[in-house]
Write a protein that binds this DNA or RNA. Sequence first.
DNA 1: GCAAAAATGTTTACAGTGATAACATGAATG
DNA 2: CATTCATGTTATCACTGTAAACATTTTTGC
Lengths: 196, 196
Amino acid sequence: MNENSNSVNIDQKQRGYHHGNLRAVLVSEGLNALQEKDADDISLRAVARRTGVSATSVYRHFPDKQAFVEALCAEGSRMLAAAQREAMLSSGGGQNGLDATGLAYVNFALANPTLFRLMSRAAPSETGLGGAKDPAMQELMSNVATLLPKDVSEERRRIRALHAWSVVHGITMLVLEGRLPRDIETIKGVIQTPVD
Amino acid sequence: MNENSNSVNIDQKQRGYHHGNLRAVLVSEGLNALQEKDADDISLRAVARRTGVSATSVYRHFPDKQAFVEALCAEGSRMLAAAQREAMLSSGGGQNGLDATGLAYVNFALANPTLFRLMSRAAPSETGLGGAKDPAMQELMSNVATLLPKDVSEERRRIRALHAWSVVHGITMLVLEGRLPRDIETIKGVIQTPVD
DNA sequence: GCAAAAATGTTTACAGTGATAACATGAATG
DNA sequence: CATTCATGTTATCACTGTAAACATTTTTGC
């Protein structure tokens, strides 16, 4: 039926009535709309309008607005995961790599504030993305685990992983919400604050 | 008619046309509406309706919806600050007290999820509440500062305070968003994870 | 091949929303 | 007590999400 996928690649010439690739274009155009972060919330009609298609055509591809937003979030999750993987690889792993993935998290949020907020808000129970079962989360867990001494209990490893996630997510949200200045050095300092 | 809640006290009987205390009642009723957290967003009309007043009467007391929401947030900030002060006092201060205020923060958020999200989202530049200049934040800073050795630099004290705030805010948001289970023991573990 | 079915698009319509303007009523002030 | 001002109300508007009925392609079964 439709193969829209990750990076959202669009070509496929426009032929009259049937658009041919509407779903993918809607998602892509939705992401664009989010970047011009004028309104914090997004309007299906606006997305349809800028795609040059009727308002209700969206409902041929998404049961409701919530579903559309979730599609945007899924796309965002892929982007974020890729950025973090890249950061981990290019920093050589270890504690250094962990800090790097944290920084990648913050940078993604600052570069895509509206999308990130959307991702944070959307109920993850449905998609599983962003929840504790998210692949990215699993990786964080295992990364933290390898950095701890062998005699540390499973429970404490879990706590430490959640602690790391909390620090990064917390500083991200505080800056994003404008409650802290967008000072990257301070952010690094917070992320790199040593534990234990 | 209705006298609900703590900081907003309402009495004053209802006399015909002029309500007498509309602003306070609207805020109070708005907070109530937030607790029946059915819709994540709140509608001015719904608040007016449940107050038994016309939809547009709200605009006699608030220039727009944003202003109304900010009033709710201000009320929430007061409640949160009070809870934290109480926690600090009844726990005897020190590191213990700091952990207690953190826990109070989380508990407030879990008890008032919609309000807390609103407070987190609202631009704090206007009100100053919730920003780094918030009295609560100032207090956090000074609390952290007193816990550190005398030879720690001003800059590191600042970083440590922000770190503490990030941990608490982060774990709060993660749980609130449903990305982590509502397990209070785990939360305590994360908050109490020792630094340095 | 081609008719029937399924997919995908459009116009129309509706109820709910934030917001403005014109009007009504009561309270405060001279 | 008359005027003024604060505070309430009733239209009205543009916009939103969504459903229903209709149109046009594409796919599929024979």
